[in-house]
Structure formats: structure tokens, C-alpha cells
Amino acid sequence: MENLSKIKSWEYRPLFVTFAHNFNNDLCGHASSLEKIKGFVDQTFNLNGSFSLLGEKVMHGLLDSARPVFIDVKHMSYASRLYYYSVVKADYGNRIPVVVSHGAVTGTSIRSDQKKTTTGFCNDDINFLMKNWSQLRNRKEFLLSRWMRTGWHHHPC
């Protein structure tokens, strides 16, 4: 939390911070990644988990300000992403852009669709599911993609 105050007092603050990566970070659960070296690393601790109490505090610390520092949802688990979107909607009236610093879309809209074959897309749950606006209100996953950057490293299954 001290580091958070430091960052917020910088003259040039970051536009966004990435909230999760490949392993547990005590903030929120991460999604399965590192396809090629999976056999050599253990991602299980907090894999697919959601936000911790510390994570919640840090999240609100970043967002709850006249000049918020945005949060990047890349590497968050599906559960963390859904929770984050619900907070952005409920507590911030959807006024905080959702940042995807790098990632791909799955071509499907909800997780149960993941068994579905979408030719030319990769359905790994690290990738993003898009939903139309009315369904978005039902807290399904969506992207506000003005801030989105599409990398290609997760596309091929």
C-alpha cells in the first residue's frame, strides 16, 4: 500500500498497471499461461482465483481518484476479470476504460462457449470473450476496446 501511494505521487504516473502475471502475486488470481514451459513451472497457487482483500484495496487505491491509474486485465483469471468488470460497473459507473495491454479474443461470448470450436481463434481462457451491450449488463465478459491492443502470441492453439 505504501508503494501505491508512492506511484500515485509521481509527477509522471503510469497510465495503467498490469494487475496479474504468470504466478500468484497476492492481488488477484491469474490465468493459465506459459504454454511452452508449462511442464517446468507450477502456476497452481491462486490459479483461476479471484481478488484478495489486498487486491481490492490496491484496485480501489488506483481507481478511486480524480486522476485514476487504469488497470490492465491481461493475465487476470476469468474470475478476476468478471469481478473487475462488475466493480468498474457498480462502483465507477463504467467510466474507467478496461485496458487489455496485449491479448486475443476467443471469438466466443461466454465461458460455456469455450467447448465450441471457433475456427481461426484460440479458446484458451487467458484470452478474452466479447459480449454485446445488453449481455454486458448481465456481467458477462466484455471489452471496452478503445484501449485494447491485440498481440498475436496467444492466438495459435
Partner: peptide
Amino acid sequence: QIVWNQLQHI
């Protein structure tokens, strides 16, 4: 084509 699939879907 793989990249285009992304852009089109988005």
C-alpha cells in the same frame, strides 16, 4: 488471416 479474424470479430 488469423490476425484478421481478431480485427473482424472485435
